[in-house]
Simulated assay, not measured.
Amino acid sequence: MTGLSIVIPMRNEAGNAGPLIDGILAACDGADGLPQIEVIAVNDGSTDGTAAEVLALAARDGRVRLLGHAVSAGQSAAIHSGVLAARGALICTLDGDGQNPPEEIPRLASALIAAAPGIALVAGQRADRKDTQAKRIASKLANGIRSAALDDGTRDTGCGLKAFRREAFLALPYFNHMHRYLPALFTRDGWEILHLDVGHRPRGAGQSNYGNFGRALAGASDLLGVMWLVRRRKTARATEETTLP
């Protein structure tokens, strides 16, 4: 398995799907040193024209694929479905709302390709967020609590721009909202992490699928669960032996 698969979770992003995917293809076509790419949009139970927009792009460019959830299962489920279906050994993700600049994908992918074998995740961190003040404050508070509890060395786990090794990702424990804890989960499995500051831009169309209050309620139980997983991690790895010690 070779290549780079770009996975985009989407829910009611009909107004963003075309410009975003066109931007991804243009950014990757203009970059040197990238392997063959595919773009996988995962339609997470949308009730608008998201699927039709992606299918029109897929008819024009065979590198574009559409997966669908009959009902919305959440961002982590969409990412997981996309990675399972991916043909590439390397994965890049970004949000479907257009706020993650697709021009950042070659930077993240190139950093992972050049990284040492022990590095499995290159995590983007938004340097200048273009969100409302309420969302920035809520995110800063949540990131501070998470960082103190998990000591994962990451200031912004909510950034959708990430590049990682497919096999390593699929070995992680899956649960809803896991995408917010990838640095801690990769570290738990013995991998090293790289961080890159990335750009951010205002939402192109539509409305956010998340509310601060609902996210906070889910985040509290998720954080306790990840703390438990980290403490119960496997502490030994087997190596093949051919002679007696």
Rank of each mutant, 00 (worst) to 15 (best):
A220T: 08
L67E: 13
L20C: 03
A236Q: 13
A26E: 14
A127W: 05
Q75E: 14
A111D: 12
R215G: 06
M227Y: 00
T93A: 09
A70C: 02
A26Y: 02
D61S: 03
L150W: 06
P9F: 08
S5P: 04
R155M: 12
D151H: 14
L66Y: 11
G204E: 13
T154W: 00
F175K: 06
A26I: 00
P245D: 11
A123I: 04
I113N: 03
I79F: 12
N100R: 00
G82M: 09
G96M: 09
A142I: 06
L57G: 03
A14N: 03
L196I: 13
L141K: 11
G45M: 10
A216K: 10
P117E: 11
P117C: 03
E104L: 08
L229E: 07
H177D: 15
A31N: 04
D61F: 03
A205R: 15
L161P: 03
A168D: 15
I119D: 02
A56E: 14
L244I: 14
G211P: 13
K140E: 15
C92K: 04
Q125R: 09
A89R: 15
D131G: 00
A111V: 03
R215F: 13
L217Q: 08
A238H: 06
L4Q: 04
G88V: 10
R60C: 08
R232L: 08
L244V: 13
G144A: 13
A205M: 11
P173H: 05
H69Y: 14
Y181T: 01
V42C: 08
H69D: 04
G96A: 08
I119V: 15
G68I: 00
G225E: 15
G68L: 02
P19W: 10
Q125F: 00
R107P: 00
N209I: 11
R215W: 12
A116F: 01
T242N: 13
K135G: 00
Q125A: 12
T2L: 11
N16Y: 02
A70V: 10
P102Y: 04
Q36A: 15
F175D: 03
C28W: 00
G160I: 07
R231D: 12
T2V: 09
A114G: 09
A56N: 12
R215V: 07
M227E: 11
A138D: 12
A116I: 00
G158C: 04
R146P: 03
K140L: 13
T239F: 10
P183G: 01
M227F: 02
L141N: 04
G23M: 10
G124L: 01
Q207Y: 03
Y181W: 01
Q36F: 06
G88D: 11
V230G: 03
A171E: 14
Q125N: 07
G15S: 06
I8R: 00
R126F: 02
R155F: 07
R233G: 04
A148W: 07
A26C: 04
R231H: 11
D29S: 14
A31F: 05
L244H: 11
V230D: 07
E103F: 02
R166E: 08
S110N: 12
A216E: 02
D156E: 02
G23S: 10
N12K: 07
A123V: 06
R136I: 15
A163P: 02
D97P: 06
L94Y: 01
T243Q: 14
V83M: 07
H69Q: 11
A184W: 03
